[in-house]
Design a protein around this nucleic acid. Structure first.
Ligand SMILES: [Mn+2]
Ligand SMILES: [Mn+2]
Ligand SMILES: [Mn+2]
Ligand SMILES: [Mn+2]
Lengths: 219, 219
DNA sequence: ATAATTTGTTAGATTAACTAAACTTATTAT
DNA sequence: ATAATAAGTTTAGTTAATCTAACAAATTAT
C-alpha cells in the first residue's frame, strides 16, 4: 500500500500532466509545498517502485501503472466531493479539504457504496470529470466564457480551477453549475463581460473570471 | 496535530483503561500489533508531550488532556460507524475497518454534520457509548445475558466486543440490538442458554456468547 | 560565446516510527 | 531465599519523509 504522501505525489503528477502534458520537478514541489530536493528524492523512489518514468534532468511522466493508480485516487477524491455536496449538504467551497484526506482511505466497499448512492456520477461538484473504475478519465474540452460573443447563450458546466476564494466569489453572485448565461456585452477596454442569468441581470465579470468559467454553447 | 499513529496509541490507552483501569505496555503493544520496545519508546514520547503519565516500570494512565483527546477520537470513530450503518447501508460487521481510518480525519465540520444528520446519537451500532463534544463518555453498566435466569425477559442493548466474526455469528441468527429475548432454560452442565426472540424460538447460545451479550431487564 | 539565471542533483542531517538483541527490574514459583 | 519467568528498558540500527547547503546542468539573455 502506498502511503498518503506517495499518493499525493502521484495525484499531483497526474493533475499536472493533464493540464500541461510535461511535468517538471519544480512545479511538482511547488504544488505539494515541499522543497525541491524533497520532491527530487521522492521522484527517485517513485521511479524505483515503477510509478514514474524518470531520467536525470528530463521532465517526468507517470508509467501506465502510475497513471492508473493516480486516476483511482482522483476518482476517490471527486466521488467524495460529490458525496459531501449531494448527500451531506456541504457547499462546493467546503469539500476539497475534506476530500484531500478521505481520498487516502483504503476501502473498496466504501467508495463503491458512495458511487452507488450517487448514481454513478461522472463529474464532481466543480464539473471536473470522475475517472471510471479502470482509471480512465475523459476530459471534455469546453470553451471558457471569455471566448464567447455578445448575444451568445451558454450553460456553465465546469471551472478551470476551484480555489475556495473563487467558489465563494461565485456563491456571492449565486452562480452555480448548470446556470444559463446570456452575454449582454463585452467591454472592449479590459474584456470584461456583462452577463445575465436566473434573477441576476447585468452582472459584470472580469476577464480573469470569464476565463475560469467553462461553458457549453446553447441553441 | 497528532499523527494517526499517536492517535491510535491514545485511543488504545483510552479503551484499555475503560475496560481494565490500569494499562501496561505489553497489553498496549499487543493491541496495537507493535513490538514492546516500539510501544515503550512511544510512551516516553507521549509522556514528554503531556498525553500520558508515566513512571518507569509502573502502569500507564492518560493525563486529563490525553483522556479528552482520546475520547474525541473514539467519538469520531463511533459517529462514523453509526453514519456508515444508518446513512450508507453498511452492516454492523463492515464498519469498524473503515471507521479505523476515518477517525483520523481532521475536520470539525465533517463530524459535526455527521452528528446532526444522525440526530446526535449516543451509542454506536454495537451499543457502545459515543463520547460527547467535551470528551465525556458515560459508560452504562449492563448485565451480560449470562447472569440472567430462566423466565427472564430482556432487551439486547450492547456487546462486550464487536469482532466481525462475532457480528457475523449474530447476523446468521438474525439477532440485532433492541431484540427482546426470553430465556427459556439454562443447561446446567455447560451454562449454555436456550432463548427465544422475534421469529427464532429455542436458539441455543454457549456461555461465551451469553457473556458477550449485554442486556437490560424488562418488566 | 560568455555570463547570468533557472532548474535539478547530491550530500549531510533530522525526526517519526519501527525492529532485534541485550539487558534490567519486578513478579511468581519452588 | 533463591531461581525462573514475565515485564519493561536500553541500545543500535532501519526506512520514509523531510530539510539546508553546496554543487552541476540546462536554458536564456547579452
Ligand atoms: Mn478537490
Ligand atoms: Mn490528499
Ligand atoms: Mn469500531
Ligand atoms: Mn485508527
Amino acid at each position: 500500500m502506498a502511503s498518503p504522501t506517495v499518493e499525493n505525489y502521484l495525484k499531483a503528477l497526474f493533475l499536472l500532466s493533464v493540464e500541461k502534458g510535461e511535468v517538471n520537478i519544480t512545479e511538482l514541489s511547488n504544488l505539494l509545498q515541499v522543497k525541491l530536493p524533497t520532491a527530487n528524492s521522492m521522484i527517485k523512489s517513485l521511479h524505483e517502485q515503477g510509478w514514474v518514468s524518470y531520467e536525470k534532468y528530463k521532465p517526468l511522466t507517470l508509467t501506465p501503472k502510475g497513471k492508473k493508480k493516480a486516476a483511482l485516487i482522483v476518482r476517490k477524491h471527486r466521488l467524495t466531493e460529490m458525496y459531501l455536496v449531494e448527500k451531506m449538504g456541504f457547499g462546493w467551497e467546503e469539500v476539497h479539504e475534506i476530500a484531500e484526506q478521505v481520498e487516502h482511505i483504503d476501502s473498496t466497499i466504501f467508495f463503491e457504496r458512495m458511487d452507488e448512492l450517487l448514481g454513478n456520477p461522472n463529474v464532481d461538484p466543480h464539473g471536473s470529470p470522475i475517472p471510471d473504475k479502470n482509471g480512465d478519465m475523459q476530459q471534455k474540452v469546453y470553451d471558457p466564457l471569455g471566448v464567447c460573443l455578445p448575444g451568445d447563450t451558454v450553460k456553465l458546466v465546469a471551472l478551470v480551477h476551484s480555489s475556495s476564494e473563487f467558489l465563494k466569489f461565485l456563491n456571492r453572485r449565486e452562480l452555480q453549475l448548470g446556470a444559463k448565461l446570456k452575454i449582454e456585452s463585452i467591454e472592449d477596454y479590459d474584456k470584461s463581460m456583462v452577463v445575465s442569468y436566473e434573477n441576476h441581470s447585468f452582472e459584470t465579470f472580469s476577464k480573469d473570471v470569464c476565463d475560469a468559467l467553462l461553458v457549453e454553447r446553447l441553441g
